[in-house]
Nucleic acid binder design. Structure first.
Lengths: 179, 179, 179, 179
DNA sequence: TATGAATGAGCTTTCATTCAT
DNA sequence: TATGAATGAAAGCTCATTCAT
């Protein structure tokens, strides 16, 4: 993750990764089928963890808007706590489609489903407007979160408080810009 | 653009691009210094065009919320009219930072500035809430737009109407989910 | 000659030569069959001129040792007056055998013949020792001259007087080091 | 060495060298940084060996003229025993300056210093004339040796005895042509 | 299990040469 | 005659992957 984060998938040599891990190049291939597989395994593992943490963050909360705020905060906390992972997921996730034709990224689909589900709940609770389809809203929200994560990850980290950003996004998505 | 869009920067061979363009490999190098330069030139050229169209789309409109809606619609129209360009910009833009360390991407910065400026206007007009900093809101909005563009570009195009999506994002960002 | 001298045969691009000559690349090919041919023509032309000047320098002189001294001086004068030509001939001449398999360099053979002839005369005049075969002595003398030409051409030109060097070589070859 | 000798630096493809060595192309790059580095390493290695052998050949001999004769014989013996090396050093050494701007060739400088030192000794012993500067005489002698080595290496080897040539050069340089 | 030297396919880039204008 | 844009073969180098130890 450290190596992919700092050099990107194509820039990262298998030998760089082996060096960073303190093993020989060949050893990598005892645990992963290929460099592609290495990145995919990373995705899977991280997304699994992320999905779990995000789901847990909303446990025991009933109101959809509270859930959404908690989700957003938890997501941003994850980003700030796992800089490298965030960078890899944020950036390489996109490119992956291009060079790993066959990989469907099921965990990311899970992620989006969770988010859409919360919004759907809100709509059923009568709290959220129903004219925007939940999957679209979920995707838009993810885009916003992802972009700000990228901004945080590539920018000077000390420039702004990621907790505040989380709340701003919560306000934006729940109440909108118009006051 | 067609080739980068379908294979990604690293997957696209210079000879693929030359083939697609109907010229010899060497001819590429009469017009571009390197493969990197080719992608960068593409960015610059497209972003310049995009920025121009987006600015023009809001001309003669006073209210910031109207401006924002027009901006969003124009952006989505551009995406649907320039599938390949959208794909390249959406995806390669992110990766670019990793493999083109020195490239600052000034046109994208312009893009964000335009968007932030509209939001700032809305705040000064008293229409938009002032607790969310304009650059953050702009970035979040771009993330949402970009993500939906990606969804449209990589998904089955006929699945939903991009115009409707534009309006949904407008509603979401201006009024929020909570009704 | 200027371009070959400063960059070497392989380092010199045809377009560099065209630029230096103030013509288009294609124009070169109206006058020379190929880049190889260009260098060969240069050799031929220069060596012809050199051979002529050297032969003339010894005209009307009878004693072989006087002839040899005059030859040496004339050679070194040529080198100092035609820096670029000297550089090309001195350096590229050697490499030529490697990459221009078929080129026999007849003018250089003429050059060596002239020199060997003078030594042969000296031997017949009873002035020069006969135990050293004239062609070997000629070749050795050329080697010495060539090396000093190279030294002069690649070194700081102002460091020593090429006329003096010529006389030193004359003394060395005629009288030897032992006093 | 074999490949550089038969095709020259530019004519020799890295894959030719790998083939000749019985390894894969990539293997070359585990041991040498680049094709340039390969040639430079060859120079260094050979010249080191040559300098050592030449120095040793004169050990225990006091008179400078004896030393010089031994040096010349040893040099020619080396040439005849290491045909390919001689060819590479003789020819590529010259061209090297043109395409390897930064390479200073320190071992060749050592070689010349050794030779000049012997001549200087002869002058101090009162055996050699002092009007010819030792470095100039050394360079001239090297030129003669180098040229004859080239002649031997590129010509039909059986045409003359390299030992005899060595002695002729010894006579020429020590006693001169004039009898 | 772990190693790391060896592999060799594959890619970007260069540049001598051509030829339509 | 002159041009110079276009060509495309060719070559140096990289690096994911293998496999004997």
């Amino acid at each position: 993750m450290r190596v992919f984060a700092s050099k990107g998938f194509f820039g990262a040599k298998v030998s760089d990764i082996a060096d960073d891990a303190g093993v020989a190049d060949g050893t990598i291939y005892l645990y992963f089928k290929s460099k592609d597989d290495l990145l995919i395994s990373l995705f899977e593992q991280q997304m699994l963890k992320i999905n779990e943490i995000l789901s847990r963050s909303m446990e025991g909360v009933a109101a959809a808007d509270d859930k959404l705020r908690l989700f957003i905060r938890a997501y941003m906390d994850l980003v700030s706590a796992n800089r490298h992972a965030a960078e890899v997921i944020t950036i390489e996730l996109r490119t992956s489609a291009k060079f790993m034709k066959e990989y469907k990224n099921p965990r990311f689909a899970d992620f989006l489903k969770t988010l859409a589900h919360v919004i759907d709940e809100g709509q059923k609770q009568g709290r959220f407007r129903e004219d925007i389809p939940a999957p679209i809203a979920a995707r838009a929200l993810f885009g916003a979160l992802d972009e700000l994560a990228l901004m945080w990850v590539t920018g000077r980290t000390d420039r702004f408080d990621i907790r505040k950003v989380a709340d701003w996004i919560g306000d934006l998505v729940l109440q909108g810009l118009v006051q």
